[in-house]
Simulated assay, not measured.
Amino acid sequence: MKPDVAVLYEHPKWFEPLFAALEKRGVRFEAIRLSDHIFDPASADIPAPVVLSRVAMSSFLRESDHGIFYAEALLAHWAANGARVMNGADVIAVDSSKARQLSLISSLGFGTPKTRVVHRAADLAAAAEGFDYPLLVKANIGGSGAGIVRYSSAEELAQSVKDRTVPDSVDKVLLVQDYVPARGGSIIRMETLGGRFLYAIEVESGGDSFDLCPADACVAQPGRATIRMAAVTPAPELIEAAERIAQAAGLDVGGVEVLIDDRDGTPLFYDINGLSNFVADPLNVLGWDPHERLVDYIEAAIAQKGSE
C-alpha cells in the first residue's frame, strides 16, 4: 500500500524527531534518502499523494555530489504528476539563493542589509566600493553559517581575492554585505507553518561566528561552541513581516531571520530558511513540541488530497 506522505531528506539524523512524531500519530510515511535517489522523468509515478521536502541547503558541506539542484527537478516532477509537494521546487529556488531572498524581502518593503551581488570573485572589490568596513562576503548558497567571511579593510579583501581565499558558492554567486551590529548581540529566528507564525527564538550572535543553527543536530556537533537561545515573542510588526515573507516565498514550513541594527534600531531581514528542523529541546525551550503542529499540518494535507 502506498504511504500517505513521503519525506525527502538528506541529513541522516536531523529528522528522527519528525519520523517519530509521524509514527506516534500512525501516519503511513516513507522516508526517501536523497543521496542515492534516481528518477525517471518520463514516469508519472509519485511516491505518495503528499510529499514533504526536508532538503538542506548545507548538504554540499557533507557531500560534494550534493543533491540540491537534483531535488529541485525531482520535486517539480512529482508536483507536475499530481503530488501535493510541501516546500517544493519554487521554495528550493528561493532557499538556495540569498540574492533571491533579499530581492523578495525588499520587494515587500522590508529592510535588508546593504548588499551587492556578483558572479565572479574578481568583481568583489568593485562591488564593495561605497561600503564601510568591516563588511561580509557571503556565498549565495550557504547553510549553518558556511561561506561567510568578515573583512576589516579593502586591502584585506583585495589580498583575499588575489590569494583565492574568498568564500566559494556552489553556484559561483557571491554577496558583499554590510556588517550589521546586532542589538543585544542576538538575532531573532521566527518559524512559520502554513505561512503563519509558529514560534520565535532569540539566538546569540557572536561577532565572527555565523553558525546560528539552534537544532539538536547542530548544537551537538563535536567542537561546536554552545550558543545561547531562548523563546521570545517578537513585536507584532516583526511577526506580520515574517508571515508575509513566508507566504511570498511559498513556505509550508520554515524560518525567517531578522536582526535589529544597533546603530539606528532598524529591523533588517536577511535570511529565509526553507528547512526547519526546529529548536533543540523544545519542551524546555518552548514548553511544547512543534513537530506535533507539523504533523497536524501534514495530516490536513493528506485529508485534502483524499477528498479531491
Rank of each mutant, 00 (worst) to 15 (best):
C213P: 03
G109W: 06
I239Y: 15
A242V: 07
R196T: 12
P12C: 08
D216I: 01
V180F: 10
F197R: 12
S152D: 15
F269L: 09
E30G: 01
D171E: 14
S186E: 06
G142K: 11
P113T: 00
M1G: 13
A44D: 12
V51M: 13
A128M: 04
V51N: 12
P167E: 02
A217W: 13
L124Y: 02
G255I: 00
S59T: 11
G82P: 08
F110W: 07
F69E: 13
G265V: 11
G145Y: 01
R116C: 04
R189C: 02
S152M: 13
W288N: 00
T192A: 00
A128Y: 03
K305V: 09
L286D: 01
E16I: 04
M1N: 14
P113N: 02
W288C: 00
D163L: 10
L251C: 04
A280V: 05
S169E: 13
R84E: 15
R244M: 09
N284A: 11
V180Q: 09
E156K: 13
G67C: 10
E299G: 03
V180K: 08
R263T: 14
I298L: 11
D271C: 05
I105H: 02
P214K: 05
L251D: 02
P17R: 04
R120H: 10
Q304Y: 12
L212N: 07
A71K: 07
A71G: 09
C218S: 14
V55L: 11
D168L: 14
D65W: 11
Q101R: 04
G185L: 02
A217C: 11
T112E: 00
E72Q: 15
E292K: 05
F19S: 03
G184S: 00
S144N: 12
G145L: 01
G287S: 03
G254P: 02
D262S: 15
S153D: 08
E129A: 11
R189T: 01
A301R: 13
L135H: 00
V117A: 03
L8M: 10
S169A: 15
L175C: 03
V279N: 00
N87V: 13
V180W: 08
T266S: 14
A182I: 02
N81A: 08
T112H: 03
I227R: 12
S205M: 02
N277R: 01
A241P: 11
